[in-house]
Design a protein around this nucleic acid. Structure first.
Length: 475
RNA sequence: GGCGCCGUAGCCAAGGGGUAAGGCAGAGGUCUGCAAAACCUCGAUUCACCGGUUCGAAUCCGGUCGGCGCCUCCA
């Protein structure tokens, strides 16, 4: 088996064939940093993090690039639209770059909580103004772009392949219902490569066409090819970016002679009450709100319980079901680990079939729900075997399986060791109390035994008696 | 109006020509001094609806109904 990915370009699942064997270059469109990250922003990064982890697990060397848009794009496409960053800066009484910086870190802190690994490179649009101007100039030279009074537009009529990614007919785009108002474009379909900065527009840079700022689409064309090469493997983003953003990226790159991305992956939307979460409609739940009530790893696990190309409707009930499910997997891990001495050699053989099924699921266009189902099947086996007195080697094998597949590949550590390790001292103290309780039980003094259990419970320590002795956990 | 997606048990969710994964919730049982956890057992003759193709359809085709996305900033 080998990895197959659904490619938006061909609308088919295709075997993954990298430009350079053994290497994978991935570009993921990151957020525009002007407001708090919400759940919708988390899906792509989590899914692509699993993609990256899976590729590395399978032996690839991965370069993972995520951009950040921080050059103050307009609120809408009208020529006199407000700069989003500047608008926010006014509201918060901050420099535009302070706004960008604030939300940049809000985003990456949230991603860290979700156990999303840091990208290899995080290029910012504001740091690549020169390269964007260079590509703009080249497109003018090649005759597919033109300047009008300080604005530079891509000439869609000069590029017949426009529409190939999103499956649109350029001629039908002309019949769009929206009428461009007060535009100096030759053609309503044309899009900006460079925009003239009006008086009062704060984020502006000098250019051959006067002071201005880059168009929204060109940053990604420039930064992806700069760090991954003119032809690279995977380019991804939300489904809502297919048109116009990615379509324009393709046009810019190919018109400049760059082969560009081989595989286009788009994750579907997270909805709230059936409607897409969106910043612009003030219809979303922020990650900060979510993390106040749920372990970020539960959120991550929840996101992986649906396939990335399906719409996922958010609900508290769903998140709770995910929390309960993850607990079940973690219980199986605990069951296997309970009383297991250090340094036992793992027996991988009983888990070979699970590994194969798990790999087949991820190889099939990253079918994480199915991969998780395999882990639940494995958990059932493990629980049963442990109940029946499985060997240390078997239990060590079970631990290795979950550490590897759930922990390393899906990025959801099966052990809650952050708490566990920090409380090594408490561990010893609780063990002492448990020993005392055992003595009480041995002399059938259940009143005393129960009193000890109740007092531990008051402190948040839950006792569980098993045939192998008592154990405990913090609730 | 154009392009596209979706509709599977109470809820979530895979599958996508050969007779319905998994999770949550629920019920019964085993174990236990009690409890917790764990384990076992139980649920769609059926995949929105109607036709068609086929030996065979949840899976393919056509239509109907319902929901959603893009066509404007958006993950």
């Amino acid at each position: 088996m080998s990895l197959t990915l659904y490619n938006t370009l061909t609308r088919e699942k295709e075997p993954f064939r990298p430009v350079v064997p053994g290497h994978a270059g991935i570009y993921m469109c990151g957020p525009t940093v002007y407001s708090d990250p919400h759940l919708g922003h988390a899906r792509g990064p989590v899914v692509f993090d699993v993609l990256r982890r899976w590729l590395e697990h399978e032996g690839y060397r991965v370069r993972f690039v995520t951009n950040v848009t921080d050059v103050g794009h307009l609120v809408d496409d009208a020529d006199d639209g407000e700069d989003k960053l500047a608008k926010r800066a006014q509201i918060e009484k901050l420099e535009p770059m302070e706004v960008a910086e604030k939300y940049f870190w809000a985003y990456f802190d949230a991603m860290a909580s979700l156990n999303v690994r840091r990208p290899s490179i995080v290029p910012r649009a504001s740091g690549h103004i020169i390269e964007q101007q260079q590509l703009t100039a080249e497109l003018i030279e090649r005759g597919v772009a033109y300047e009008r009074d300080g604005n530079v537009y891509f000439d869609v009529s000069a590029w017949e392949a426009y529409g190939k990614l999103s499956g649109r007919d350029p001629d039908e785009l002309l019949e769009g219902t929206r009428v461009e108002v007060r535009s100096d474009k030759d053609d309503p379909r044309d899009f900006a490569l460079w925009k003239r900065a009006e008086a009062g527009h704060i984020m502006r840079w000098p250019s051959p066409w006067g002071e201005g700022f880059p168009g929204w689409h060109i940053e990604c064309t420039v930064m992806s090819t700069k760090y991954l090469g003119d032809e690279f493997d995977i380019h991804g983003g939300g489904l809502d970016l297919v048109f116009p953003h990615h379509e324009c990226e393709v046009a810019q790159a190919e018109a400049a002679g760059k082969p560009f991305a081989r595989y286009w992956m788009h994750w579907n939307m997270i909805t709230l009450g059936g409607e897409k979460m969106a910043k612009s409609k003030d219809h979303f739940v922020t990650l900060e709100e979510l993390f106040a009530d749920y372990d970020p790893l539960v959120v991550r696990f929840h996101l992986l319980r649906s396939h990335y190309r399906s719409v996922s409707d958010f609900s508290e009930e769903g998140l709770q079901a995910s929390a309960a499910g993850l607990k079940r997997l973690r219980e199986a891990y605990r069951n296997a680990r309970h009383g297991l001495p250090e340094g036992v050699e793992a027996d991988a053989q009983p888990f070979a079939a699970f590994r194969e099924r798990f790999a087949a699921a991820l190889d099939d266009d990253l079918n994480t729900p199915q991969a998780i189902a395999v882990l639940f099947d494995a958990a059932r086996d493990v629980n049963r075997a442990v109940e029946e007195g499985a060997s240390p080697a078997y239990r060590a094998g079970a631990i290795a399986l979950l550490d590897e597949l759930l922990g390393e590949v899906l990025g959801v550590p099966p052990a809650e060791d952050a708490v566990h390790d920090a409380l090594a001292t408490v561990d010893g103290l609780v063990d002492m109390v448990l020993a005392e309780r055992q003595r009480a039980r041995d002399r059938r003094d259940f009143a005393s035994a129960d009193q000890l259990r109740d007092r531990l419970a008051e402190l948040g320590v839950t006792i569980e008696d098993t045939p192998q002795g008592s154990r405990w956990r913090l609730d």
